[in-house]
Simulated assay, not measured.
Amino acid sequence: MQVFRLDDLDAERAANEGAYLRFLNERSMSVGLYALNQGDQDPQQPHRQDEVYLVVSGRASITVGQDTTTVGRGSVVFVPANTPHRFHHISEDLRVLVVFSPPEA
């Protein structure tokens, strides 16, 4: 069994001075913590994997393909592989669990 604490993951991510920390990489999926602060720009490009986002804190808008919605704590968003997407109008520091399937390279 592997158990992770979000506070510890966020501290490790910040110590590495990056917006993303992959903390689990298995045969069928990988999982990471993505952080964008209020006012940040999201530089993401489409990924080759399907993704699921679970917003654990913060507030922002997300555009996936042509659709835009507001997300906050508890929001779950599915992004199909190769689909343009990005967070924007980040009004509260955003922390998001990201699940890739298959795992990111």
Rank of each mutant, 00 (worst) to 15 (best):
G58K: 00
S61T: 10
D67R: 15
D50E: 14
P46Q: 09
V71E: 04
V71T: 06
Q45K: 15
I62Y: 01
S61Q: 14
V64K: 09
T70I: 12
S61F: 00
V55F: 04
Q49P: 02
D50P: 03
Q66F: 12
V71N: 06
S61L: 10
V52Q: 04
T70Q: 12
G58C: 01
H47A: 06
Y53C: 02
Y53L: 05
E51I: 08
Q66L: 14
L54S: 08
V64W: 06
G65E: 08
G72L: 15
V55L: 06
G65Q: 07
Q45R: 14
D50K: 10
E51L: 10
H47Y: 07
D50L: 07
Y53W: 13
L54N: 07
G72H: 14
Q49W: 11
R59Y: 00
R59H: 03
Q44P: 03
V64I: 12
T63E: 12
Y53F: 13
T69H: 08
V56S: 08
R59L: 01
T69Q: 10
L54G: 05
L54I: 13
V52F: 10
R73S: 14
T63V: 09
T70Y: 03
D50Q: 10
R73A: 15
S57I: 09
T63L: 03
V71C: 03
G58L: 00
G58S: 04
T69N: 03
E51M: 11
A60Y: 00
Q45N: 11
Q44F: 04
G65F: 04
A60N: 01
V64N: 12
E51Q: 10
R59T: 06
T68C: 05
P46G: 08
Q66C: 10
T68F: 01
D50I: 02
R48I: 02
P46D: 10
Q66W: 12
V56M: 12
V71M: 07
I62M: 04
E51S: 06
Q45C: 09
T68G: 05
V56R: 07
G65S: 06
Q44L: 08
Q44E: 05
Q44T: 14
R59S: 05
I62V: 11
R73Y: 11
V52K: 02
R48L: 05
